[in-house]
Nucleic acid binder design. Structure first.
Ligand code: MN
Ligand code: MN
Ligand code: ZN
Ligand code: ZN
Lengths: 149, 149
DNA sequence: TGTATTTTGAAATCCGTTTTCATTTTCTTG
DNA sequence: CAAGAAAATGAAAACGGATTTCAAAATACA
């Protein structure tokens, strides 16, 4: 099993892309700290240590990560694309708190199986899916209840 | 059971909004022909019969429909918001063909129940959810298979 | 009616994303 | 270790869908 860094280097070689210091810095930073960060937020983080790296490069590199499979691109309906590390191509779905923005990951084999059933009954060939549950986390639910007049 | 038109008129009255000819024309057109149309596409349709109605008015009116519950706002990941009539607040999810854009609606009580289970195990209070299955419809799947070299 | 209030349509603006372009860096080959 | 070809970079511009602005028009209510 290759690690994320090796996977990315292989990808670069295969596509005749060049291995630059910016790409390595962005990769390491991404693997270290990223969890559902928007390009903007990730860029702002990175800029603290590496102010010379431009937004365009960050954007382009995150896209490369998604293309080679070490990142997943997510959209939780707030108009901002988010990226997260995609370990071993393991799939998961999300609970999104509309109160505080907290994101909880989950995986449910039964739901996945039922999705396949749905697709089959419609002669549909599934390539991908997205399931997001929106609502309030325990903390936000409690604070909303207590603030009702 | 009130129909969509009555619901919208009630909504306008409740919010002290005015009943204009544009709003009625847009409402009737929307109820008649809309199925997962983007604002742009809906506007282009409408313009054929009503060229004097502006895009901004169409956009604002579709938002009103969503606000009062007679329309549902959808986003299938192509960067365009789509609207559809939301009959009787009945929920459904979607199969989206990435080949031809075809959209098939489905409803699966078991999946809905399992979602509630997931939420409960995470002490999450669900308000809404979205489930989309992306892939190829039967026709697109067949044509892709036949075009492989 | 008169008049306050809302709505309208065109155009401008917003805002996240993507592209452009001149310059710099990387990589290959002799 | 050059040099030349190819690709990457960063700043700024462009893009595209969504939203807002604003002056003129339409509506609702007394
Ligand atoms: Mn995740
Ligand atoms: Mn639908
Ligand atoms: Zn929360
Ligand atoms: Zn299709």
């Amino acid at each position: 099993m290759k690690n994320q860094e090796e996977l990315f280097l292989d990808f670069l070689a295969r596509k005749r892309l060049k291995n630059t210091s910016q790409r390595m810095i962005i990769l390491k930073s991404f693997l270290r700290q990223s969890l559902h960060l928007s390009t903007e937020d990730f860029y702002l983080q990175l800029r603290k240590k590496h102010p010379a790296i431009g937004y365009a490069t960050v954007h382009r590199t995150l896209k490369l990560f998604a293309e080679c499979g070490i990142a997943a691109e997510r959209n939780f309906g707030d108009g901002q694309t988010r990226f997260e590390v995609n370990y071993d191509n393991e799939h998961h779905d999300h609970l999104v708190c509309t109160g505080c923005g907290k994101i909880i990951e989950f995986e449910n084999r039964q739901i996945e199986q039922l999705q396949l059933d749905v697709a089959r009954t419609h002669n549909f060939f599934i390539k991908d899916h997205r399931l997001e549950l929106y609502g309030l986390c325990a903390a936000c639910h409690a604070s909303e209840a207590s603030s009702l007049s």
